[in-house]
Each structure stands twice: as C-alpha cells, then as structure tokens.
C-alpha cells in the first residue's frame, strides 16, 4: 500500500485538536524556574521549530505540550473542536529512542494496541508504516539491536502509526550521522505531507533551516522570538538570537 493511497483515507490525521494554546505557563523544579511565563499558540499547518541552546528548556516545553508534566503555573489548552481527544491525537519522539525489548514490528504494534486498534487493522498499519520509513526489511529484528538511525526511525514510525494530529520531536537527530539524519528528515517531511502538524526542537541551525516553516527561539526558559523561518534567519531581533546564530556560546 503506497503512502498516497493512505493519505486519501478519511480521517488521517484523526482529530482536529489544534490550535494548542499555552497561557502563562511556568515550570519550576527544585527551586529553579526553568520555564517563564510562556504565552503562545501553535496552529495547524506550518512546521514549528523550537530553536535554542542546550538548557534553554526545549525538552521541558515539549513534555508540557505532550502532557507528561503539568505546568507549575498557567495552563496548556487544546482549542480545536476535537480537543477532548487531544491525548490520543498527539505523539512525542524522544531525543534518544526508547524502544521495548521486542521486535521492531512489535514495538509499533504495541503503540497501536494501546490505542485500541483491532488486530487485523494493526497488522496492516504496522506493515505500512514500517515500509514508509524503510524499515520493512528489519521488521522482525530485535528493536534494540538496530543501528542508532534505524532505532530513531522506528521511534518515529511508532509515533506516526498512531496517526497523530500533532507530532512532537525532541532533538530527534542529535545523535545521528548525516545519512541517518537525512533519512529521518525525509520521513518527517513525508509525515507532514499527510497533514500532521510537526513541532520539533533542535539546537542545530542547519537542521532548523532545512525543516522550519516558523521558528520559536527559546533562551533561558523564555520565548524571546517567534518569526517565520526565513525572516528569523535573515534578521533576528534579539541580541541572544543574533549571538546564537553567530555560533557564540553564552
């Protein structure tokens, strides 16, 4: 089954849960304020890239959006007509792929089983998504014995298989070689082409330029800038963003 056929299926992505609104969101832990008073809205459509140096709070922000942690202050609100289905309409791919000690196929199958997809459909969807991410030949291999790039693609495939309306990716290519990175980015573009909203964090400028439609620049737990990608790279407004683009470490 080709990707084109599947994108024509009704209901993919499944739910209109966007926009996602953060209202005065702060997060502190151990007496440290890690995120400060974030207010922004993520709309369906453009690939949003959260850019910033290490320790700027990018991973934390994605975990908040994915509902894994609760903000200390403020709220994370899904505003779409299907907002009540937000939990099943989102997926998160972690920086380091977290795979279960079973085959690649079984890893994807596991995610679909959690969503209550019945057995026959599961087998089809698993096979299709593994083909789409060029993992079909590795389907029966133990997931944890795959290469780093294959593992990250498998984590992506597993997230995609759940047909999310929003896909959060936390520095997905940070430990990959250039070839694996390109394969992963291709897969991300293909996923977006099916209508899934992509929200990705990275500290890698080149990757941000390749993937971003818009940039959210995060620094020290604060959202300093938000702009359309070309405009951000052409003329960042804050001095922190300018320094970051120049490659200066602060």
């Amino acid at each position: 089954m080709s990707k084109a056929e599947r994108t024509s299926e009704p209901g993919r992505p499944t739910a209109a849960v966007l926009p996602l609104r953060l209202e005065g969101v702060s997060y502190s832990a151990g007496g440290h304020d890690l995120l400060h008073d974030l207010d922004f809205v993520l709309d369906a459509g453009p690939r949003s890239v959260i850019l910033g140096p290490n320790g700027s709070g990018k991973s934390l922000l994605l975990r908040l959006c994915d509902g894994l942690i609760e903000p200390t202050r403020g709220r994370v609100v899904w505003c779409g007509p299907d907002a009540s289905r937000a939990a099943e309409a989102r997926a998160l791919v972690f920086q380091r792929p977290v795979l279960l000690r079973r085959s690649a196929r079984a890893n994807v199958d596991y995610a679909l089983r959690l969503r209550g997809v019945d057995t026959g459909e599961r087998a089809q969807r698993v096979a299709a998504v593994l083909e789409d991410t060029r993992l079909g030949a590795l389907a029966d291999r133990p997931a944890r014995r795959l290469s780093g790039g294959e593992q990250q693609r498998l984590a992506l495939a597993r997230a995609w298989a759940t047909e999310p309306s929003v896909l959060f990716l936390d520095e997905p290519a940070s430990s990959l070689d250039p070839g694996s990175t390109r394969a992963l980015e291709d897969a991300i573009r293909a996923i977006q082409a099916t209508g899934t909203k992509i929200v990705l964090t990275t500290h890698d400028l080149a990757q941000a330029e390749r993937l971003a439609d818009e940039i959210l620049f995060l620094h020290g737990g604060r959202l300093l800038e938000r702009a359309e990608a070309t405009r951000f790279f052409d003329g960042p407004e804050t001095k922190e963003a300018q320094a970051f683009l120049r490659g200066e470490v602060d």
Partner: peptide, 20 residues
C-alpha cells in the same frame, strides 16, 4: 526511569505500564 515517560506518552494506563 528508562521507559515510563515513553509509555505514558504512548497513552499507556497504570496497569498497562506496570504490565509492560
């Protein structure tokens, strides 16, 4: 420590996480 956040992100409930 290694897996639970991923399992919760996949939407696993308490019993499913424990079982997994």
């Amino acid at each position: 420590d290694e897996l639970d956040e991923q399992l919760r992100s996949l939407g696993a409930g308490f019993a499913q996480r424990a079982g997994t």
